[in-house]
Nucleic acid binder design. Structure first.
Lengths: 349, 349
DNA sequence: CTGAAAGCGCTTACAG
DNA sequence: CTGAAAGCGCTTACAG
């Protein structure tokens, strides 16, 4: 297993550059470490030449060992194939790059054992901050990690008792916007689809607010909720929707996230129901929402912005040894109106 | 800028564990370095206790500095928001994890300057291999890198004169399958949509094969090709399709990749054309292809498998100091038949 | 402006 | 079975 270092690792070292340039290691270190100005022009020139002759690149691993800073940010993603996560990741990556940080992305595939393993790994590499888009239940490990002072920010869900910032959607406002839009466009019976709440605070918040609104506006609207796990699939959803439609007069389906929108769209297609007559409104914008006939109305999250903000939080904690309260930063979604909420079933009016 | 190491970096060190366990650094190193068996049971127990008391995790940065191996694999992704790339990435990540490697993912956003920067960064971290899903033109930098012996594998495109493996689709077979399916289902006029070929060998290969087939089968089919850049957008595509439809008797659009399928679907929708009467066949399977009415027929790539194979190539080169010819590994796609290729325009028959 | 020396957290001959 | 010592490629007081 232990092989000789492969050919490609024969990278030039600082020491070699120093020799080649007839300079000290200290000077070469200064040249590449951002203290170039305090070197004489002649020295600078010699080092520059030697370095380019040897094609020298500082070894960041070694640098971080002594300097303490690794320039590495870790990110735990519950499902790397989820477009929402990827969009947020893109925002984080851009912000990180602008500040000279690199992202180590770890996909946990919603498996908490994998999550554990990845956390251990990230710590071992000396990450300076961690963005967590956790799978359902957040591990104990994560709570302990936060308590060591590692800058940490949670995406889309809180973690009670953990010293970490949270960046996500304003779930109350989102549900309110959804309900208001459905009422305004004439729908009166609402079926709310959510993935099982488990320990996901965002799902919990959306569900609570929905329940609250159904009660508060019970003179205007009727509502039901259904928890659908992705593994249960379409077959468990179909009868629920059939039942719902049969008793509702002006029905609309409200989807708690992109996965639910996908399931709902599949369901309506399978049942050959006319989207629009049956309203459909999804939280999260997806590439294909505009492609279906009619388009699907969505509440789009500002994904890039959420990502950038998450990184900014990390940076503040990193720089200022931030010790204040955990912050909760919540964004409002944007309503994108399309055909799926344009006309309640005429038969029913 | 240079701060004291933050609290979270006060991780226990090997030295501390050694002291706590009344053992030598060597023994502790052996314990965590996989030579645990050669330690007496008593020593093992003492070290285990001390380590868990101090919550010790080896510093992988330091380990790699001395040992030469970092356990890091780099991946350059042209567009992290492309579902195809993400699916392949997922395959790579799984394979890498199984072998104890971690993935550093860098998104280049199709920007070759960013690509340069990321390459420099990855090298600095001492990656042991690199998977490249390059933006259009592959930089000189990459060619030099491969020549240093760094294990490298190219995704979906070749790079002439570069010592690297390539894993991707069998483009000839793919085009042949597409054409055969279109003919079989009754279409006779084909519009081939591709992103600009630039330096992307896969696009080049698909286009060449298509041209070849159009000639070889000219007694049966007619064909046209159109290069559409994503930045040009729908407005430049619409007139092309209108023109194509107006002169064709049994028309079908063949899309060179997922982006083109998206554009074509948008175009047909905008023109209110009946998909199916106008055939539509896309290379690359997308989540929403089954959702449209009628579904869109696709040629699906075995994305996970491509990813896993790419990592396997890296590993072989890493282990065996592989010096043979660059290998080109090509997979066949799977045809997923749907409504979009089910009935040529009846008016025309 | 410049450099010799100590040290970051680890591994690995080498010696016992 | 166990450990003292040298060294991986860097940075950083400290001294000149």
């Amino acid at each position: 297993m232990n092989l000789a270092p492969p050919a490609h690792s024969r990278r030039a070292t600082l020491k070699q550059v120093a020799q080649e340039a007839c300079a000290s290691k200290t000077s070469v270190s200064r040249y590449f470490g951002g203290a170039r100005e305090q070197l004489s022009l002649d020295l600078q020139k010699r080092i520059a030449r030697a370095a380019s002759r040897l094609n020298y690149r500082p070894n960041l691993m070694a640098r971080s060992l002594k300097g303490g800073r690794t320039g590495l940010i870790g990110m735990l993603v519950a499902d790397i194939r989820n477009p929402f996560s990827v969009a947020v990741m893109h925002g984080i990556e851009q912000a990180a790059r602008e500040q000279g940080f690199s992202l180590m992305i770890c996909n946990t595939d919603n498996d908490s054992r994998l999550e554990q393993a990845h956390i251990a790994q990230l710590i071992s590499y000396g990450i300076e901050g961690l963005v967590v888009n956790a799978s359902g239940r957040v591990s104990q490990e994560l709570a302990e990690l936060a308590s060591t002072g590692l800058p940490m920010v949670l995406l889309d869900r809180q973690l009670p008792g953990v010293e970490a910032d949270m960046v996500g959607l304003d779930n109350d406002a989102t549900i309110d916007m959804a309900i208001a839009h459905l009422i305004e466009t004439g729908y009166r019976d609402i079926l709310y689809l959510s993935e099982p709440v488990n320990h996901a605070s965002s799902r919990q918040e959306r569900l609570s607010r929905l329940t609250y609104q159904l009660t508060a506006q019970e003179s205007t609207i009727n509502g039901k909720t259904f928890m659908l796990s992705m593994s249960a699939g379409l077959t468990s959803l179909v009868p629920v929707v059939e039942q719902f439609i049969s008793t509702a007069s002006r029905p609309a389906i409200l989807c708690g996230n992109g996965n639910m929108t996908l399931m709902a769209a599949r369901c309506l297609k399978q049942l050959k129901l006319n989207t629009g007559s049956i309203g459909l409104l999804g939280i999260d914008e997806l590439e294909w929402c505009s492609l279906l006939t009619p388009g699907i109305t969505t509440l789009a999250q500002p994904t890039e912005e959420i990502g950038r903000r998450a990184f900014a939080c990390l940076l503040e904690r990193n720089r200022e040894a931030y010790v204040g309260q955990s912050r909760h930063i919540r964004y409002h979604p944007t309503l994108i109106k399309r055909g799926s909420t344009s006309c309640p079933d005429p038969h029913a009016i």
